[in-house]
Design a protein around this nucleic acid. Sequence first.
DNA 1: TTGAAAGCGCTAACAG
DNA 2: CTGTTAGCGCTTTCAA
Lengths: 347, 347
Amino acid sequence: MQEVRTAGEVRQKRVTIVDVAQHAGVSTASASKVLRNAYGVSESMRERVQASMDALGYRPHRPARGMRGRTFTIGMMVSDIDNPFFSLIADGISSVLRQRDYELLISPGGYEAASQNAVVDALIDHQMDGLILVAPVVGGDDLDRIAREIPLVIVGRHSHSEVLDSVSGDDERGSELVVDHLVGLGHGRIGFVTNHQDRVEPDRPESARLAGFLKAMASRGLADDAVVIDSRWSLEGGRNAVAMVDSLETPLTAVFAGADVTALGIMSELWEQRRAVPATYSLVGYDNSRISSIGPIGLTTVDQSGFEMGETAGRLLLERIEGRVDASHVLLRPQLVARTTTAPPER
Amino acid sequence: MQEVRTAGEVRQKRVTIVDVAQHAGVSTASASKVLRNAYGVSESMRERVQASMDALGYRPHRPARGMRGRTFTIGMMVSDIDNPFFSLIADGISSVLRQRDYELLISPGGYEAASQNAVVDALIDHQMDGLILVAPVVGGDDLDRIAREIPLVIVGRHSHSEVLDSVSGDDERGSELVVDHLVGLGHGRIGFVTNHQDRVEPDRPESARLAGFLKAMASRGLADDAVVIDSRWSLEGGRNAVAMVDSLETPLTAVFAGADVTALGIMSELWEQRRAVPATYSLVGYDNSRISSIGPIGLTTVDQSGFEMGETAGRLLLERIEGRVDASHVLLRPQLVARTTTAPPER
DNA sequence: TTGAAAGCGCTAACAG
DNA sequence: CTGTTAGCGCTTTCAA
């Protein structure tokens, strides 16, 4: 029997820049310059070195690069990778980075500030060239502190910080679109399901969507018909919201769930109780996640163009890395996607 | 106005092991040993150094560690992060790594062998200590080659390789469970939607599930009633499968979609045609993704216990890194989850 | 334009 | 048990 061992086997050594330099008959410094597209190399030098790199199949060792210069790696923190919206953002980022030979590495940070901070530290320890944090729950001061250590872009959270960039949807506007849609259908008494915050941070999407909802209702003379249901933006939170809505003295004709996942929880709970949507009440989500378009779901929701957000975030981060110092905060226009969970009220 | 500049500002230098050693009044070698929990350090030394590390808030620089030894980082490649099943696997892996101070970094590799290979190379270039590839489309030879470079575990794909470990669900058994369920309900003529492979690789889940389906049908005397529908495991593939099923001469009473996402595509298409499930035909998926449990969907499917897969993969990889040389291939038992998309045939 | 040499933060071999 | 020192692969002065 042939022995095929891994640990015992002598793994062939990596091709290093020294090998390339020797093969091309030049100094490592010159090879390095070619690798980095740096100034001060003749055309012939560039060609020779490039040929050697190709011939030897040279791939730069990232940790070694990181010791002195850049790693050409960008870190992305998300709470949980299982979020279709994050996936779109990641695709958008990748599409920008790819053209510039940067690489994207993703790390799930959970839903607690403590665990997210730990993940951010770890990404910094990897000597990444920049970080993109998606909907971080970390406090604003912490974000500024991080931004002073490393180029930083946050996605999905409004910001006015001077030291970092941000890309987010115009959540206030998004809520307004929803209210317009529902009022247009004839609804008056509308509920909004919140994502409970122990310590309210005004720059978080949940705050902006709630504010937008209240403002839009008020400006249409429906301030007294705006009902806030304090729950959580999760499947479970949606399920629980159903009972809360039922316990209201005056019933609702429409519920704006604040997020698709919450709307799905509500749908699921209602379905189990054999109550139909939109017959029971109209239902609106937020995010336009892929599930929402599936036939039997057909959730009316708000699209945030995640891919474009990712592209923008990637572009901003590269600009930061190249040295831009003034902050840039981009707000993207949301769009309402009307499907089958909204209809005129029954009465 | 106060100037708050990032790039211009002098960023404070990192705390290095030299700082720790100085603070504790010992050599860097000793500090390093404490950091690595290496042998040959007195209790008092350990305490002093540890105290200094805590006092200075020392965090080891991963690239530097990677230059000589381990980075304590594991890379995970997935085709696309937007897959609830992958999320479960990642959680499982993380739960194991966390106890051992390893970190998990995830990289989306797309659906092509070429792009996946590029991502794997990039992870190797980062000097990661080991890799976990989820359902790679890369050829078996390539996997062996990779495994000779770096400790490797593949998830969701059967393997008999001597140089790498694998964890997967028993897909043949899973298909058998589905056939049993459907036949138990009274179905005879059953369709199976495949994920088309240009070059059939027998160790891929799509091959195993198809084989299991055909075998189970045959062993129940239904070989002639087993219909194979060649499509793709995607939302679109599911949608297209509907027309293919409709064009069959003898109609089906049940469709085993091979994967949840395919089943969702079928559901969606049928729904748009105002045809009900399971009235049109019973429908079964595979994966038990989170969506499948949502009320209005209620998809009958097969659970693969992704979290456990992740745990196992993490454990196997750490063992490899510690030096295990004989391959380990784990097969996990799948379970049928019956919901509302399956029922006895109408006739 | 090119090359020699120092050094990034850490580990490992070896000496004391 | 502890310290000295070389060196990982690369970038970056600085000199030629």
